[in-house]
């Protein structure tokens, strides 16, 4: 994806694109939807089996892929919907690296608390 800076919202009429066309594919990344979050997903990377279910289920393409593996979350865009945690099929054997709780590899924590990357 191209690197973008947020587009200007103050261009005069003579400078807007004809017909309202948008020429910058994917420039929506400059809009930070992460601020919508009240709960944040956290992943225990060590216990993750890389099933990729969270990746395919994420409405916001907010689960980055590094070397073919899911790697944390894109907190600039994750809206905290919780689908990834709900759909995570892996029950962990050891307490979660972030929450210290048993349960799933992905767990939701309140946005105000410490945790995540």
């Amino acid at each position: 994806m191209k690197e973008y800076t947020a587009p200007r919202l103050d261009r005069p009429w003579s400078e807007v694109n004809p017909g309202g066309i948008v020429l910058d594919p994917g420039i929506s990344v400059t809009y930070i939807t992460g601020t919508w979050r009240t709960m944040r997903p956290v992943r225990d990377q060590a216990q993750c089996t890389q099933c990729l279910i969270c990746w395919i289920m994420c409405p916001d393409a907010a689960i980055p892929i590094v070397d073919g593996k899911v790697d944390s979350f894109d907190y600039d865009h994750c809206k905290g919907c919780g689908i990834c945690a709900e759909q995570c099929p892996v029950n962990i054997k050891k307490p979660h690296s972030v929450t210290g709780e048993l349960g799933k590899v992905i767990q939701m924590v309140p946005e105000s608390s410490e945790g995540g990357e």
């Binding site: 919508w36 916001d60 393409a61 073919g68 689908i83």
Partner: peptide, 22 residues
């Protein structure tokens, strides 16, 4: 397919948990 380009980029403004973007 996990290494495919995301052709619907993040930063769209559909509600959290909306079924449509997935």
């Amino acid at each position: 397919i996990v290494n495919n380009e995301e052709r619907l980029a993040p930063g769209h403004r559909l509600c959290g948990g909306c079924g449509e973007p997935t």
